[in-house]
Amino acid sequence: MAEILKCNHLKKQYGSFTALKGINLELPEGRIVGLLGPNGSGKTTLIKLASGLLLPTAGEILINGQAPGVESKKIVAYLPERNYLDLSKKISKQIDFMGDFYKDFRKERAYEMLEHLGIDPSRPLKELSKGNREKVQLILVMSRDAKLYLLDEPIGGVDPAARDYILSTIIDNHPENSTVLISTHLIADVEPVLDEFIFIREGEILQHSAVDEVKAKGQTVDGLFREVFRC
């Protein structure tokens, strides 16, 4: 299976603080992968490096065999932790914007998901609740037929019902051959949808395994996480 994301001795430093300590990682196509670790473990830094927002201090990160740049951004759909939308815009205008820049953006899918949620696309984003803004942001990301989805804490800070909606949206909308990397510390919630998981702590990868391997041993990823990250 071809690799969609590869890290070779990837290191990132912010001043004297080392966020990633030379990690090696390979993610194949068509997998849903949990990037799991406590706050400050390097999850967001790894995702920012993959999205091209940051440059490595040493080593390399490759997306579909290329360093992050214009070409990789065409196939990567990135959902940051933060609200990145221009709130003065109407939702429909934001959809037009995405459609203009991404060939793989499916407008009809976006409108379908909005209708399902009962959100009027002609409304300005500033009139939406915080929760609905986050859902619109997720809809914009999942309306793309990307090869790699980078989802940074998509279920952090939302109620359990919203978590279910977000996870089902991810599962129902990503193309089969695409890879989804979900960063979170809410292991139990994402565990049912994961094919693989990565445990990361203090900028180092502790474990990268298939979920089935853990299940075969009669364990759960959540249980293993608690064991590995016990304070």
Binding site: L53, K73, Y78, P80, L85, D86, Y102
Partner: peptide, 13 residues
């Protein structure tokens, strides 16, 4: 600002 998360990940130079 936070809008950079969208604008700077667009496939443009």
């Amino acid at each position: 600002t936070d809008e950079g998360y969208l604008m700077l990940t667009l496939p443009v130079k």
